[in-house]
Design a binder for these strands. Structure first.
Length: 997
RNA sequence: GGGCGAGUGGCGGAAUUGGUAUACGCGGCGGACUUAAAAUCCGCUGGUUUUACGACCUUGUGGGUUCAAGUCCCACCUCGCCCACCA
């Protein structure tokens, strides 16, 4: 008897498959299609690892299963070849990425073939081949034409020593991975794809996908939708000017002076109250000095009365502030004034007597809006600023914040801007300018990791204030790096009593905490006390951020927080100060890389720096072979050093090419479509072929595919808009494969030396079949699993048993040495009810297994399917003690068909040895017949009060009464029933009798 | 902090719809074959208890629903993974 020797049969069948092109997918098939694919690999120099083996064992078992089940199956393979490793290798060794890639692909392909995977190699693609990236560039052009590819400024990591841009993962503790020097963030022009346009569609589409919930959740989280409101805060204006007619004199001392500027509006005439100076050709509003902490409004009221006699005034609001510097000749000082502007309405024109002194120098006048210019203020624009406020027009300076909790509006005690926020530079007062600038610079240097690790809040006061539009309160504005520039508006309103982060910030910088929300269970006084304790740092150290009832919120007090959210935004919206807003965490996709080894971006610039698409007939923009792959001093890729590359003529005009290349994710965002039509030289694909094969029915990939799969989805949505596909979701079912861990349960890594080399496993005598079957058997496909050599041995032993069983049968059958036929088939013996053994007859075993394996394959439960085949083998071993007969040939053949998706070489070999002319991978998958599964008896569990007390065997056609009678009569059951009358008897047909007493 | 998932023998795991928990494999023990070993084959293998039949306990912990719970509900504990100052 021949021993199982995979090293003999595996090469034999691999050769047959290759020569017969057994797995070529037919475009014009009339069969239903199944498109099965694993995420294509990056062919590294190290060759296949255990993870690859896992992915493609899952893919191949599924592909083979559907192929045997009458589907036209597309199971392609390609290479994701662009990327940093090849480029770094080239910089180090001088071996071109093209050459290294070629070698690696050849090695990967060879290794895949040794696994015996059923791939249609005619459809092989390679993203770094011009035939492929021509179309990647073409797709870029389509996106560009629709405004979905654009250039914008963006902060990038920059190493000043290497003079190169670094990716996030190349920055280690704020230092360059290569030279160890401190890196900084630099503003650079970068290319983006506008994926945010699809945010809502990407989110909504998830609901209908047959993907693992965890993967869907990760995408939802990545998209990060949140609904809230944008709220505008007027900056308390404080424009500064120097009186040009009265310039400062450097030899004179400075004095500070606080003043008010009082405006009175008469609604009847729509005029404004001013005073005209009698001795000078000046007209101005009422002006007066403030002493100490005096109330500006009271001062204004008094000054108006003193200077003009008007006394019935209604206070409207404080408008803001103006600051000026000038030389006051009469006092011989440089004066720095800080003017608070206050507006009143005239209720009636009753006047008091003005003092003789005042009367002598000035008289009141009523002016139209257009006439209102202060003669003593030289800068007309600054003057107008104050009047724009009088007119109720929009303020010139505002800060827009995003919040999900507008209900806490009345609890705002400060604002925080991201340090990078453009308003920071504009609003910061001179006094704080140095500190703010220092902080800003320090923040830009911090790596993201540092920002993450150091959770301690940092920030600086800008010196500026804004007005809370809900209650008119003055609110200080801070800059802090816990606010992220790219999210929302890069500015937040802080309600420390009701937000953890604001809380921390307030505590650290000793800012006020104002409670405006109570849990319903505690009345308002209680919570204030709690908060008081919190601020004292006692028992409580956190904010209350749940829903509740509003307090201290003006007319909104008493509303529930969700109710308030709606109402306060609507209320503010009437004044143009707020609007409902949905934001997404997801940013546009940055695709430009200052790297050589990628698909060149098909853009050129004219003399004036205008962008021009490379025309279609000049595609592809070929990546030229160069000698030195190092990026040059400009921080651009090595391509910039090639004048032949950079120079291009478009429509007769000489231009300079873009030297950035595209992110590898761009290349992998459409490869699943290219497989449907991989050799098309005229188009990216023929929609007819793509609409036949795609979307992918079964896609296998690792957990790091969240972004990859978002990008694939976005592109597909775009293609659908262009009419290039009929569908907008590219992947119908996704299987997230788990990792293979080392035997000690830790991650495999070269440095630890605990990796498993699949080729070594094959060569050491186990063979590809045992390797594949073991990998699928160890755990369900989506679970992590630790490698076990003993486990592999067990599966190898199982395959050996299958082999020996078939050998035994074949040898006996060839020699025609079967004894007289034994009645081991239910089809004959079972029906006649001759022998009890017939319940375990050949057909029953096989059909039971067919059913189990088929159903398990449909739900990708490979481990249990293989377990069923092991069980089947064990049972056949017992059965063969009674001798073989002719029925075994069919039974064993069927078993080979079930085994083929896992151990295709052995199945093919044994299927052939069993005398089948067909190839196992083309032969029809067996179906089960229920008639073999029904036995003439069944086993019923007997429970008393829910506890198992006995099992009884009854004829299948026994009726309920009979079964209950048998159950009650059972010795052990009767013991527990103890002669009592059952209250109730539950009978679950074919399974259980439960006697309740 | 947020999200997702998982806790079942000595180990990996099975139990698909609430219906005989521990399939299958590993490991362990015993046996057959062998001069011997390997390989192969056969049997036993959750715990406590019992001569035995059996009984009692057991799916992270504590409650609940139900004739019946690994499975459903509530609370808690532990672990893993992903995202993470996202307002």
């Amino acid at each position: 008897m021949k021993r199982y020797n995979p090293s003999e049969i595996e090469p034999k069948w691999q050769k047959i498959w290759e020569e017969g092109e057994s797995f070529a997918a037919q475009d014009n098939s009339t069969k239903p299609k199944k498109y099965v694919a694993g995420q294509f690999p990056y062919p590294s120099g190290a060759g296949l690892h255990a993870g690859h083996t896992r992915v493609y064992s899952i893919v191949d078992a599924t592909a083979r299963f559907y192929r045997q089940n009458g589907y036209e199956v597309l199971n392609p393979m390609g290479w994701d070849t662009f990327g940093m490793p090849a480029e770094n290798y080239a910089i180090k060794t001088g071996i071109s990425p093209q050459a290294a890639t070629k070698t690696n692909i050849a090695n990967f392909k060879h290794q895949f073939k040794r696994l015996g995977v059923s791939i249609d190699w005619d459809r092989e693609i390679n993203t770094s081949h011009p035939e492929y990236y021509k179309w990647t560039q073409w797709i870029f052009a389509q996106l560009y034409k629709k405004g979905l590819a654009y250039r914008a400024e963006n902060y990038q990591w920059w190493c000043p020593i290497d003079k190169t841009v670094l990716a996030n993962e190349q920055v280690e503790n704020g230092k360059c991975w290569r030279c160890g020097s401190e890196v900084e963030k630099k503003k650079m022009r970068q290319w983006f794809f506008r994926i945010t346009k699809y945010a809502e569609e990407l989110l909504a589409g998830l609901d209908d996908l047959d993907w693992p919930e965890g993967v869907k959740a990760a995408q939802r989280n990545w998209i990060g939708k949140s609904t809230g409101a944008e709220i505008d805060f007027e900056v308390e204006d404080y424009p500064h000017f120097i009186d040009k007619r009265n310039p400062l004199r450097s030899d004179k001392p400075f004095t500070k002076r606080k003043i008010i500027q009082a405006f009175v509006h008469d609604p009847k005439t729509n005029k404004y109250l001013f005073v005209k100076w009698k001795k000078f050709p000046w007209t101005s509003c009422v002006i007066g000095g403030i002493e100490g902490d005096e109330d500006a409004v009271a001062v204004a009221r008094r000054e108006i009365l003193e200077e003009t006699g008007y006394k019935n005034l209604k206070f409207e609001r404080v408008l803001g502030k103006l600051r000026s510097e000038f030389y006051a000749a009469n006092k011989e000082v440089n004066r720095d004034t800080d003017a608070t502007q206050v507006l009143f309405t005239l209720e009636n024109d009753e006047r008091a007597k003005v003092s003789a002194e005042e009367d002598a120098i000035q008289e009141p006048v009523w002016l139209d809006r257009s006439e209102c210019q202060y003669d003593d203020m030289p800068n007309y624009d600054e003057t107008m600023l104050a009047f724009e406020r009088i007119d109720g027009k929009r303020p010139t300076h505002k800060i827009t914040t995003f919040t999900t909790r507008p209900d806490t509006m009345f609890g705002i005690t400060f604002l925080v801007l991201a340090p990078e926020h453009p308003m920071v530079g504009k609003i910061t007062t001179e006094e704080y300018a140095r500190e703010v600038e220092k902080y800003r610079a320090a923040t830009l240097k911090k790596s993201d990791i540092e920002r993450q690790e150091n959770k301690e809040k940092t920030g600086v006061f800008t010196g500026a204030y804004v007005i809370n539009p809900a209650n008119g309160e003055r609110v200080p504005v801070w800059a802090g790096d816990f606010v992220i520039a790219g999210y929302g508006t890069g500015a937040i309103l802080a309600t420390p009593a009701h937000d953890e982060r604001d809380w921390e910030f307030a505590v650290k910088f000793n800012l006020p905490i104002k409670v405006v929300l109570n849990p319903t269970s505690i009345d308002s006084k209680d919570l204030s006390q709690e908060i008081q304790k919190m601020t004292n740092g006692d028992e409580f150290n956190h904010a209350f951020h749940d829903e509740g009832v509003m307090v201290n919120s003006g007319e909104f007090s008493g509303l529930s927080s969700p109710e308030m959210r709606e109402k306060v935004v609507k209320w503010l919206a009437q004044r143009g100060a707020a609007r409902f807003k949905t934001t997404y965490k997801m940013r546009d996709w940055l695709i430009s890389r200052q790297r050589y080894w990628g698909a060149p971006i098909p853009i050129a610039y004219d003399k004036d720096g205008n962008e021009h698409l490379i025309p279609d007939d000049q595609l592809p923009v070929i990546l030229p072979k160069i000698d030195d792959y190092k990026p040059d001093d400009s921080g651009r890729s090595a391509l910039a050093k090639s004048p032949e590359f950079t120079k291009v003529i478009i429509d007769g005009i000489e231009m300079t090419r873009e030297t950035d290349t595209m992110d590898g994710f761009a290349c992998s965002s459409w490869y699943l479509l290219r497989y449907a039509d991989p050799r098309n030289g005229q188009h990216a694909w023929d929609p007819k072929k793509v609409n036949f094969w795609n979307p992918v029915d079964y896609y296998v990939g690792g957990e790091h595919s969240t972004t990859h799969m978002l990008y694939v989805r976005m592109w597909t949505m775009f293609f659908r808009e262009l009419g290039l596909t009929d569908f907008s979701e590219p992947i119908t079912k996704f299987m997230k494969n788990g990792q293979i861990l080392a035997a000690d349960g830790t991650k495999m890594s070269k440095s630890k030396g605990n990796t498993i080399d699949p080729l070594e496993v094959i060569d050491s005598g186990y063979g590809a079949d045992a390797l594949r079957t073991y990998i699928l058997f160890m755990v369900p496909p989506d679970m992590d699993a630790a490698w076990s050599l003993q486990g592999l041995g067990g599966v190898h032993r199982f395959l050996g048993r299958v082999w020996n069983l078939v050998q035994e049968y074949v040898e006996l059958s060839d020699a025609s040495r079967f004894g007289p036929p034994t009645s081991c088939s239910v089809s004959e013996a079972g029906r006649n009810g001759e022998k009890e053994r017939d319940n375990d007859g050949l057909n029953r075993i096989i059909h039971k297994t067919i059913k189990k394996v088929t159903n398990d394959m449909r739900r990708s439960s490979f481990n249990t399917a293989i377990a069923a085949l092991m069980e089947c083998t064990n049972e056949l071993y017992k059965l063969k003690e009674n001798g073989f007969n002719d029925e075994w040939r069919k039974a064993l053949s069927d078993m080979m068909l079930l085994l083929a998706p896992f151990a295709p070489h052995m199945a093919a070999e044994l299927f052939e040895q069993l005398g089948n002319k067909e190839m196992v991978e083309q032969a029809t998958y067996p179906t089960w017949d229920e008639k073999y599964l029904v036995s003439d008896v069944m086993t019923i569990a007997v429970q008393v009060n829910g506890k198992l007390r006995a099992t009884i065997t009854v004829p299948v056609d026994a009726d309920r009464a009979e079964i209950e009678k048998t159950a009650l009569a059972h010795e052990n059951a009767a013991k527990f029933i103890g002669g009592k009358k059952p209250k109730k008897i539950i009978y679950v047909p074919g399974k259980i009798v439960n006697v309740v007493i």
